[in-house]
């Protein structure tokens, strides 16, 4: 009886809310994987740039910089994110074709700059940034479902669905897959590597902004919130194999649920250590990602 009760009242809600946040980790992870798949760069600036744009939304809508409506602020921040992604890729693109290691280190530099700019513009204060969504809640089968949950789910499904449709059915998506599969052959066939890389970097930036805006209401917004959120996205990408978009999606949801269970049943103080453990174990068990069979190594 008590076991069943605790399952009903703890476990299922934990899995549900873990799945909701997991969708957001997946959004972050999808961006990382898109960039890695085609340009072989791990974008360590992903979290800090997304954090900066979330702060821009706050600054533009709260009156710190301007007092626009929320929608207009998001639009401006999206444009800023696209511009930043464009700028970052433009600066490092000569290095990208030479050494993926050096360009990965270069993204850390952009991460540092984004962090510093956030500090310079908005200070180290903690601010609240909410979503303009109707507040309602109901309960189904013991699950407590809020308007926030449904919004996140809807946005995630629409965004990820749109992304997969673009990648599966459009010419751009086919070019993206061709370049991820074999850049040299794709270039021989007349594809422009750079423009497809731009597509990946800009899409990733937009996914990052969406993820950041949706995660912030659950906590608060500070210089480090979004960067920490992105560690979960990195873990999700690793579980998915770092080169698989569906893998990133599954990894994100899995990380969301695991993190929720761990913080509830074990300890909230060791969450980063737990993630480290998850990454190490996942690398040992699924070196090629959770959706692929364990087979030959990929060095």
């Amino acid at each position: 009886m008590t076991v069943w009760d605790s399952l009903l009242y703890d476990l299922f809600p934990l899995i549900w809310s873990g799945m909701i946040t997991g969708c957001l980790y997946a959004l972050g992870a999808l961006g990382l994987v898109m960039i890695f798949k085609c340009s072989k760069v791990v974008n360590f600036s992903h979290g800090n740039v997304a954090g900066l744009t979330a702060f821009l939304v706050y600054g533009l809508s709260s009156g710190v910089l301007m007092s626009l409506s929320w929608g207009a602020a998001v639009l401006v921040a999206m444009l800023a994110a696209v511009a930043i992604a464009f700028l970052i890729y433009s600066i490092i693109s000569p290095v990208v074709f030479e050494s993926d290691l050096t360009s990965t280190i270069a993204t850390l530099g952009f991460g540092l700059i984004a962090q510093g700019v956030t500090l310079l513009m908005f200070g180290a204060d903690i601010v609240a940034l909410d979503l303009p969504i109707p507040r309602f809640a109901f309960s189904v089968l013991g699950l407590f479902v809020t308007g926030y949950d449904l919004t996140v789910l809807a946005v995630a499904i629409v965004t990820i669905g749109a992304l997969f449709i673009v990648i599966d059915y459009t010419k751009l998506g086919i070019a993206f897959r061709a370049i991820s599969e074999n850049p040299f052959a794709a270039e021989v066939c007349g594809l422009n590597l750079r423009s497809v890389h731009y597509f990946a970097w800009i899409t990733a930036a937009i996914l990052g902004v969406i993820g950041a805006l949706l995660i912030v209401p659950t906590t608060f917004l500070s210089v480090t919130t979004v960067a920490t959120f992105m560690l979960q996205a990195f873990a999700a990408a690793v579980i998915g194999g770092f080169a698989s978009l569906p893998g990133a999606l599954v990894g994100g949801v899995l990380i969301g649920i695991l993190m929720n269970l761990f913080t509830f049943y074990v300890s909230p103080e060791y969450s980063s250590t737990f993630l480290l453990g998850v990454i190490l174990v996942a690398l040992n068990i699924f070196p090629n990602g959770i959706l692929q069979k364990v087979g030959g190594s990929r060095v």
Binding site: G111, I113, G116, L119
Partner: peptide
């Protein structure tokens, strides 16, 4: 961080 980032780049 800005200076470190610029130095790195």
């Amino acid at each position: 961080p800005v200076l470190y980032g610029l130095a790195l780049l």
